[in-house]
Design a protein around this nucleic acid. Structure first.
Length: 149
DNA sequence: GCCAACGTTGGC
DNA sequence: GCCAACGTTGGC
């Protein structure tokens, strides 16, 4: 899961009550579908910082809720307000995410790109802009290993 | 349904 | 700040 640390970073999640927060603001259908269809409670997540120098994986989080309606889509004062969504037919969902561990070693995007074993990750493929995407178990474990080294 | 124009993401 | 690579919008 990608986030801009200036907006909401791993430290913000660590500082949240129970190190848990709502992952709101997803406004891309593909990303939403991954969240809705692929995520399960207990799944581990690579927490990625984008639009920062350097971008990279900062730690691990965990999915702690089923998908539910994103409340920010109905609030006109919200940045994520969607006038085309309605409470009886909501478009957007959230999951709750809990911070598990900040890596000892920040795994930069460059390190990921430099590692042949990680070359098939969606993250490093051309044109990818999704803020939520699936990760293979082997890729996940490899990055965790880098992060703990 | 097509597609041009426009908006967004995000690395560099 | 630039720009590639999308995704979305809306006229037709």
């Amino acid at each position: 899961m990608k986030t801009e640390p200036d907006v909401y970073g791993f430290d913000d999640l660590l500082a949240a009550p129970k190190q848990t927060d709502m992952w709101d603001g997803i406004r891309n259908y593909q990303a939403r579908n991954f969240m809705r269809d692929q995520m399960q409670v207990g799944d581990k997540v690579l927490f990625y910082h984008s639009n920062t120098k350097p971008p990279g994986v900062v730690g691990i989080a965990e999915i702690v809720s089923e998908a539910y309606t994103d409340p920010t889509q109905f609030d006109p004062n919200e940045k994520y307000f969607d006038p085309k969504s309605s409470p009886d037919k909501p478009r957007w969902i959230v999951v709750d995410v809990k911070a598990i561990k900040k890596f000892d070693h920040y795994v930069s995007l460059q390190e990921i790109k430099d590692e042949p074993k990680l070359s098939s990750m969606r993250l490093v493929q051309k044109g990818n802009r999704l803020s939520i995407m699936p990760v293979e178990k082997s890729e996940f474990e490899f990055i965790v290993k880098l992060g703990n080294s």
